[in-house]
């Protein structure tokens, strides 16, 4: 028989742990539902049609999209290349060294990267507040996520795939292109989705690289500031006007909706690649 004291301790412990779980789920629901409830009514077609000078968000939404696209163009190939190298080409020892740097890079505070980009790109290189600087700074921050997911996606593949390709005498390049990359694709794309999600939500690396502009982004990479959503959230909530506050809330809402969509896509891709890996390893 367990003593009452031990049973009580057991009960108390699990009650406290459940409280912990509630304090994880609670804030997540609180933030998302709270923001959606207060800001969804503020979302209207007007936001898309007008720029921020006229209480719309057109330039910010377009800017965020362009920046996200640019980050994918830079971080995507670099991350996938590095991931392929780590999983396919590097020896065990070299891989463990080369794996270390992306991990460390992901831990660098975003404002530090933003500040370095400001000093080097905006000032030293005379780029000014510009699209290119605003793409490079967050790219550095999110590349590690693409590296990691590419490497993991390739390593998860069953050994039999590689053995089969080798038995057929396929060159490495063909093996990669025809045998390994297709089944690893959902995992790799998932990494890009995560990278996109994080860069969409970032503000600190953009503050002093993108500047801000009330006009839509121009095709020129240098010397033209770019507007983006998170800046509107940060700035307009500090302005002394109810309509500006509404605009900040609406911008936060749009950012959050984009993120929710990306998390959902990531989930589906992760589920898809896990099922695929499980099916193949039989």
């Amino acid at each position: 028989m367990r003593s009452i004291r031990r049973s009580a301790a057991d009960l108390g412990f699990w009650a406290l742990c459940s409280l912990g779980l509630m304090m994880i789920v609670g804030p997540a629901v609180w933030i998302v539902v709270g923001l959606l409830r207060s800001a969804l009514p503020l979302i209207s077609f007007r936001l898309l049609a007008q720029d921020t000078a006229h209480l719309g968000l057109q330039n910010a939404i377009v800017g965020t999209l362009v920046l996200g696209l640019g980050v994918l163009v830079i971080a995507g190939p670099v991350g996938v290349g590095a991931g392929i190298y780590l999983s396919e080409f590097a020896g065990r020892r070299l891989a463990s060294v080369a794996r270390f740097f992306p991990e460390i890079l992901a831990g660098v505070p975003s404002i530090v990267v933003g500040y370095a980009a400001y000093v080097l790109l905006v000032v030293r290189f005379h780029w000014g507040y510009s699209l290119l600087a605003a793409i490079l700074a967050p790219s550095a921050l999110v590349t590690p996520y693409v590296v990691k997911s590419t490497e993991v996606a390739l390593r998860q593949l069953p050994t039999s795939l590689r053995d089969g390709a080798r038995a057929l005498g396929l060159p490495t390049v063909t093996t990669l292109r025809r045998v390994l990359l297709p089944p690893a694709l959902p995992g790799i794309v998932n990494g890009m989705v995560v990278a996109l999600a994080i860069s969409t939500g970032e503000t600190a690396p953009l503050l002093y690289t993108a500047g801000f502009s009330d006009a839509n982004p121009t095709p020129s990479l240098l010397h033209h500031p770019v507007g983006y959503l998170t800046y509107v959230v940060y700035t307009d909530i500090q302005l002394p006007s109810a309509r500006m506050h509404q605009l900040a809330n609406a911008a936060a809402d749009v950012t959050l909706l984009v993120l929710l969509a990306l998390i959902l896509v990531g989930r589906l891709l992760g589920y898809h690649s896990a099922r695929r890996a499980a099916r193949m390893s039989l």
Partner: peptide, 24 residues
Amino acid sequence: GLSIFLELLAGIPSVVFGLWALLV
């Protein structure tokens, strides 16, 4: 299903956290 909330918390942008802490 419950792990989604972890991903959600990891994914919420810091300005949204800031907005929530500031206003709520």
